[in-house]
């Protein structure tokens, strides 16, 4: 039996009258790449922020790695990359990575190894000592991803990890997510790119704060009678609004 590392029960987040996330029920098993897809304002980022303890749920509950949110005991086993850059532009790439490693009390030896691998993955080994302010938007995004992964978390939340990343490197990212998965880690990500969401094991389609469909990309396309995930989303959205 597979272990569920993310479980939400009727998770709801309201901002005044606006229901950003409505009664979300999620079960994400260990060792999968789970993609939350949907247009802007569909509640993907809010859901991830609630799960990471940055926003308090209005009602319902969430558990990560078997601990109620906001987690403390298992927090060092979780990684989070927010949608905004959220790294220190007045520090170098290395200093940013070192800071986040410090937050997780990593030993110097472990950090040095992790830094080397991550800098290769994000293709920024040569810019290790550059100030982040001097990097391009895409490069900053890659540094932000590396900061989320530096402590080798077993559950990673990535909010739009491939925005602003060129296609070649984006492929590299997905290969890396696959590597994480094969190492038994769980990746929960949001994306606008439907073509790359096909590479997720499970996709959750969100619209107006609600989960309108969930399943493997193949099953979703098959059920909607479409050949692309984008069309499958549109078909589900249309069905939901009827």
């Amino acid at each position: 039996m597979t272990e569920d590392v993310v479980v939400t029960n009727a998770l709801t987040k309201r901002f005044g009258e606006l229901v950003a996330v409505s009664s979300l029920d999620l079960k994400i098993s260990r060792g999968v790449v789970y993609g939350l897809i949907g247009p802007n304002g569909s509640g993907k980022t809010t859901a991830i922020k609630v799960m990471n303890g940055l926003l308090r749920a209005t009602s319902g509950s969430a558990r990560l790695l078997d601990e109620e949110v906001p987690v403390r005991g298992v927090i060092h086993r979780i990684g989070y990359m927010p949608q905004e850059m959220a790294i220190y532009t007045d520090l170098t790439v290395h200093e940013n990575l070192e800071l986040f490693a410090g937050m997780y009390s990593m030993s110097r030896g472990n950090f040095e190894g992790a830094e080397k691998d991550l800098l290769e993955m994000i293709d920024l080994a040569e810019r290790r000592d550059s100030l982040v302010a001097t990097l391009s938007g895409g490069m900053k995004h890659r540094v932000s991803l590396a900061c989320a992964l530096v402590h080798d978390p077993e559950l990673v939340f990535l909010d739009e990890p491939t925005v602003g990343v060129d296609p070649e490197l984006r492929k590299g990212f997905w290969d890396y997510f696959a590597e994480l998965k094969s190492a038994g880690k769980t990746v929960v990500l949001t994306t606008h790119y439907m073509d790359e969401a096909v590479r997720c094991d499970i996709v959750g389609m969100m619209r107006l704060g609600e989960m309108i469909a969930e399943g493997t990309p193949e099953s979703l396309m098959k059920a909607a009678g479409t050949t692309t995930l984008e069309d499958a989303f549109l078909a589900n959205a249309k069905e939901g609004s009827v």
């Binding site: 990471n52 940055l54 060092h76 989070y80 009390s105």
Partner: peptide
Amino acid sequence: ANGTLDRLLTTPV
């Protein structure tokens, strides 16, 4: 404003 504070708060700090 940069979101770094929020991000730090998702770590064990």
